[in-house]
């Protein structure tokens, strides 16, 4: 199953999450991965620790972060979540801050991670019009509608 189809089926969109820091955004937004049993709870704190150590490697484009860690760092099954923030947070990446869209990814193998999940997320993020519409959406239903359009267009 593709990234967009997973999100539609599992209903893993959160719109206008309230978070007071980038760490808070990862913990609150990423809880959905734990609830869906696709990641162990420590997966999220590992992401935070790695960002503190290595810099904000999960920030991939202006306004967008893709929180993820390696398969062996707590992945249980393939999972995705798309979270928009009520107020943007700063990750410390001057080229791309502030961040208001987080696309969480957990994949149990490097192959799935690199060759499927990351490409599909990059495809969506490279569509500036869709990204702007998602960031401006005021409820999750509006985001599901945008994602459904993306699925239709890809066919």
């Amino acid at each position: 199953m593709g990234f967009l189809e997973y999100i539609m089926d599992e209903k893993t969109v959160i719109c206008n999450l309230e978070a007071d820091s980038w760490e808070d955004a990862i913990l609150k937004g990423g809880q959905i991965l734990v609830d869906k049993k696709t990641a162990v709870p420590g997966y999220l704190t590992t992401i935070i620790d790695k960002c503190r150590t290595n810099g904000p490697y999960i920030v991939i484009a202006p306004g967008i972060a893709m929180p993820h860690a390696r398969p062996e760092e707590g992945a249980l099954a393939l999972g995705y979540a798309l979270v928009t923030l009520k107020d943007p947070v700063v990750f410390g990446d001057p080229d791309n801050d502030p961040i208001e869209l987080l696309i969480f990814l957990v994949a149990p193998s490097v192959k799935e991670h690199n060759e499927e999940a990351v490409c599909q997320i990059a495809d969506l993020c490279d569509d500036e019009e869709a990204v702007a519409a998602i960031m401006h959406a005021t409820d999750a239903d509006a985001i599901y509608t945008i994602l459904q359009q993306q699925i239709q267009e890809a066919k």
Partner: peptide, 12 residues
């Protein structure tokens, strides 16, 4: 472009 590179999905 990071996004364009990610779209290629390059592995070991």
């Amino acid at each position: 472009s990071l996004l364009k590179l990610m779209k290629l999905g390059l592995s070991q």
